[in-house]
Amino acid sequence: MLKEEIELFREAIKGAKELKQNTVVAPRGKNLKKKLMIRDVREQEDTLFFFSDEYEPLLNDESAVKYLREGEDKHLLKQLRRGDFSPEIFLDLHGLTREESKAELAALIRACEKEHIYCASIMTGYGTFTLKRQIPRWLVQHPRVRALHQAPKEWGGEAAILILLDT
């Protein structure tokens, strides 16, 4: 039966030309680092897109800084205020300009997303209160921010903000 199959095969390919491999296929370029850098820059630009300086959310400037995304459990704010969530990552913005702070904030959110971090602490300091007022206004615009609250004393008190993220 094997001989019959071979004969049948030869009959089927009768008149076919033999191919010669005389070309070399170049290996794919190693642009992985460049692609990763471009992707990181695009992700940062995408994240910075959410931080508008003109947007004025309804935040009470006189009381503790707090925000809860629509549809979230109101108990989250109480948990943040009490310190039930421990921040897994800290960002210190002391001495940075508004633009530097905005870029660092975007990088923090991106890092939290990549590392699956749910709670972060942002140290704004006291200073001129510029960052302390602006940081919450930026954060409430980002779709990954579920809630934010002024940190309890053990995580920085009035000079820090705890944020809870979707990741």
Rank of each mutant, 00 (worst) to 15 (best):
E4I: 09
E5H: 09
F9R: 15
F9P: 11
A12V: 09
I13V: 15
K20Q: 15
R28M: 13
K30F: 09
N31S: 13
K33T: 04
K34T: 06
I38G: 08
D40H: 07
D40K: 09
D40E: 15
T47L: 01
N60H: 06
A64W: 04
Y67W: 06
R69K: 15
G71Y: 05
D73L: 00
H75F: 02
H75W: 01
L76H: 08
Q79F: 05
L80P: 05
R81I: 03
R82I: 09
R82L: 07
D84I: 04
P87H: 06
L93C: 07
G95K: 13
E99P: 02
S101F: 05
K102H: 06
K102T: 07
A106C: 08
H116V: 09
M123V: 11
T124C: 11
G125I: 03
T128Y: 06
T130S: 09
L131N: 01
R133N: 11
I135N: 03
I135C: 07
R137T: 06
W138S: 01
W138L: 03
V140C: 12
H142K: 05
P143K: 12
A147M: 03
H149M: 10
Q150R: 08
K153G: 06
E154N: 05
W155P: 00
E158F: 02
A159S: 15
I161W: 05
I163V: 14
